[in-house]
Write a protein that binds this DNA or RNA. Sequence first.
DNA 1: CGAGTGATCAGCT
DNA 2: GCTGATCACTCGA
Length: 202
Amino acid sequence: MNYPWLTAPAEAVADTARDLLGWLVSAHGVTARLTEVEAYSGLGQDPASHAHRGPTARNAAMFGPAGRLYLYRIYGMHSCVNVVCGPEGQASAVLLRAAEVIDGLATARARRPAARSDHDLAAGPAKLVQVLGLDASAYGTSVVDGSGPMTMTPPPVPVAPELIEAGPRVGVTSAHEVPWRFWIKGDPTVSAYRRHVRRARR
DNA sequence: CGAGTGATCAGCT
DNA sequence: GCTGATCACTCGA
């Protein structure tokens, strides 16, 4: 299997993210088609990246070779997945934000009883992690050599370039001007853009 | 509808 | 201590 994004340079992470739209991700009996992704650069120019301040115990996977998972916990209760890009030592990554479940629907529904519809099953980064059944044990595992719980497959049908839209990343306080969020235009599994709002004080 | 908020924790400052 | 690459639920209009 040839993964073009596996060998792409770190500075091309935005293109890599765009190219990942339409790919299939499979884990623990559920397969979903990526409809929304975001790029995060690890070259020190991207304050929104978890790797911006250099390697730590938490973000170590991002500094490893491409094709591994970077999972992190946020707000205490939710987890999000990234696929690491770029060569070892350069911490670029693509955040998987939303997907359309195309196989293992029953399993996906069982994992997310709160979903309002099938389109809502993986309509958000934490929801996607939940539907795929990923947890901390998936941290740092490979999606390309079959050793980890998750695998990736090229799109059965390529995504038409005119259907790809770009815009500012969600929930990011800095670097609003960088349009590094990519999604498939009109896809019902893509959540509406919400600008970052600071939590209200009491 | 939309705005507000609770849940809950690792990693920086 | 504070702050977040979040989600789901509750209000009030």
